[in-house]
């Protein structure tokens, strides 16, 4: 079996589910003939035709609102926003409508939509193309926020997101789109939502992360092993709702917790996880919970983005610091 990239796994999942369910409709800017600016929808127009793969007019709020209307009336729209920095015009539709349609009609209507967007820095893109503002959506009741970090998880989690009866924000780390290849069987098997994935088993410290930072965190864990620290690495994957059971069980075992995310520090999901750990696993902790995050500043343009994204070095330093904590 050929190995494929994360973005190819996205395409593979879309094609699988469109074949399986005629109500799945892909829409967004340039998703048709162009196959999407990252080619995530490459070939879908030829396979499924223009009723199923819809190039929309250039209006993001419209993409959001249209998808809401489609989802409420029995379709399963998978709407693409070209970059996370362009999702904001649709935030009204996502927060005021998609997220609460089921609740405000007491279950009479629902809104099974997937809003996909590439996110994160590190691809030398122009401004507004490097956002990591997942916390905005993680703060919104009624949504799920799902972030894959490998081709297999991209495939399995996207299938799960499309099949989920509620709205899902699906954030694809653009830095990982073509980073690593994996064999991804096209078997239509979804991976579970609302569940963390333990990527590396360890005993000394729990490293909690998601999205593109999985890459640096795993690299840090390898180096730490050489330095005598055995780190457990958890990919949260669904950041809303949080699977705290997996994180707490790990912290109870290791006694130490470092959360790594690319998003700005203040009110990032790291704060939520740290608060939960301190509320529910305080007596297991041998050191303060630490965060290694992006900074509380605007994500810089390409020349400085490497200084912004948490590095392997920064993760290692913080881990060593808490390992030495008395």
């Amino acid at each position: 079996m050929a190995e494929i990239t994360l973005v190819e796994a996205i395409t593979q999942a879309l094609a699988y589910e469109m074949q399986a369910d005629p109500n799945v409709i892909v829409l967004g800017e340039d998703v048709g003939k162009d196959g999407g600016v990252f080619r995530a929808t490459l070939g879908l127009l030829d396979k499924f035709g223009p009723d199923r793969v819809r190039d929309t007019p250039l209006a993001e709020s419209m993409i959001g609102g249209l998808a809401v209307g489609m989802a409420v009336q029995g379709l399963k729209p998978v709407a693409e926003f070209q970059f996370m920095g362009f999702i904001y015009p649709a935030v009204d539709q996502i927060i005021n409508h998609a997220a609460r349609m089921r609740n405000r009609t007491r279950g009479r209507l629902s809104c099974p939509v997937v809003f996909r967007t590439p996110y994160g820095a590190g691809i030398h893109a122009p401004e507004h193309h490097s956002e990591s503002t997942e916390a905005i959506f993680a703060h919104t009741p009624g949504l799920r926020v799902v972030i894959p970090s490998s081709p297999r998880r991209a495939y399995g989690l996207l299938l799960a997101a499309i099949r989920d009866p509620d709205p899902v924000i699906f954030l694809e780390p653009s830095r990982l789109y073509r980073w690593a290849k994996q064999e991804v069987p096209d078997d239509g098997k979804a991976l579970p939502l609302d569940t963390c994935f333990t990527l590396r088993v360890g005993t000394d410290v729990t490293l909690v992360t998601w999205g593109a930072m999985v890459k640096e965190t795993l690299e840090a864990a390898s180096k730490l092993a050489e330095e005598g620290v055995n780190a457990e690495v958890i990919d949260v994957a669904t950041i809303k709702p949080l699977d705290m059971d997996t994180i707490l069980a790990s912290v109870e075992k290791t006694g130490r917790c470092v959360i790594v995310h690319e998003a700005p520090r203040t009110c990032g999901m790291g704060a939520e996880i740290a608060a939960e750990v301190s509320e529910k696993a305080l007596l297991s902790l041998q050191a303060p919970v630490k965060r290694v995050t992006g900074y509380d500043t605007v994500v810089p343009y390409a020349r400085l983005e490497k200084s912004y994204i948490p590095s392997v070095e920064r993760i290692r330093e913080v881990v060593h610091l808490i390992m030495e904590f008395a």
């Binding site: 959001g64 249209l66 009479r108």
Partner: peptide, 29 residues
């Protein structure tokens, strides 16, 4: 908003002007 005898119509939309988009989306369906 949970009408017993209507399974299709949308509920009231309070954010002004946001609902015509739902109408277009419903028309796609």
């Amino acid at each position: 908003n949970c009408y017993a005898n209507n399974k299709q119509d949308f509920p009231y939309s309070v954010p002004v002007g946001s609902q015509p988009l739902h109408a277009s989306g419903a028309a796609v369906a």
